[in-house]
Design a protein around this nucleic acid. Structure first.
Lengths: 140, 140
DNA sequence: CGGTATCCTTGGAGATACTG
DNA sequence: CAGTATCTCCAAGGATACCG
């Protein structure tokens, strides 16, 4: 009882981080492997918009994800599909209809993405302020 | 009372996502703005390792972040410093000693990063399996 | 030790045109 | 409608050499 819970928190945290950063057989840690496929401009935005829209069609999604090109939406969706995060449902009508949807795995990712998104929304102004300050201090 | 809590969850979720994806004055939503500075190969790994190591020196950090080059560690640290997530403490000794540390803002980001990291660690195998399956189905 | 300064390569991503 | 197919470009990032 000589150690309080608050003093234990950093220890627990370090253990968790250690597990996340532990190298696997391929020489990469889980995060690194994740980033290789996910550190890009559009994946997170597409996941969030799929979470919002439910089962949107291709062009529905395209108009929702502001600024994305047709090509990059295709590429991003294929990548998400490959990772098992998204399903692609084709209805062979004329003209064809295609609906995209998050898998259960994709929805679980959506939850942590929302955590990141909420952090970004909450601290946006603070970061902008820090940047401005940094630049004024390093301006020559 | 006609609507259960579980039926309300998607509604609440949509509200949250809507807020995250809401466009600001600069024409970007918080997530998009965040990604512009953060969707890269190293930032997340550096934040996690700073969370693990506490106040590491430059080369300490370099040896911890497996695979990073000296240049990219410098670039990444400067970017994190600019965003107010990391402090750089120089001790003017000979040879010089420099310690990096997460700011309170950086620590709050660490928490959500850990959420993402734990997700990645937990579902790594499932994703690898999905990829393999996808490739075998699309092999011609 | 903790960086800069260059040079160079690669692939992420945009623009445009075409198609089942 | 929902994509391919190309072409192109630029910047992220790696390699190497030098420096206070």
């Amino acid at each position: 009882m000589g150690v309080t819970i608050t003093e234990n928190q950093p220890v627990e945290r370090r253990k968790k981080i250690a597990k996340i950063l532990e190298e696997k057989a391929n020489g990469l840690c889980p995060v690194h492997d994740f980033l290789i496929h996910f550190a890009n401009k559009w994946s997170m935005l597409v996941v969030l918009n799929l979470g919002y829209a439910g089962s949107p069609r291709f062009n529905e999604l395209k108009s929702r994800v502001s600024g994305i090109s047709q090509r990059m939406l295709t590429v991003t969706l294929r990548s998400l599909e490959e990772d098992g995060l998204v399903t692609r449902q084709l209805y062979p009508e004329i003209p064809p209809r295609v609906e995209y949807q998050l898998t259960p795995l994709g929805k679980s990712l959506l939850d942590v993405m929302m955590g990141l998104g909420e952090w970004a929304a909450k601290h946006e102004a603070e970061i902008a302020k820090a940047r401005k300050k940094f630049r004024s201090r390093h301006a020559d």
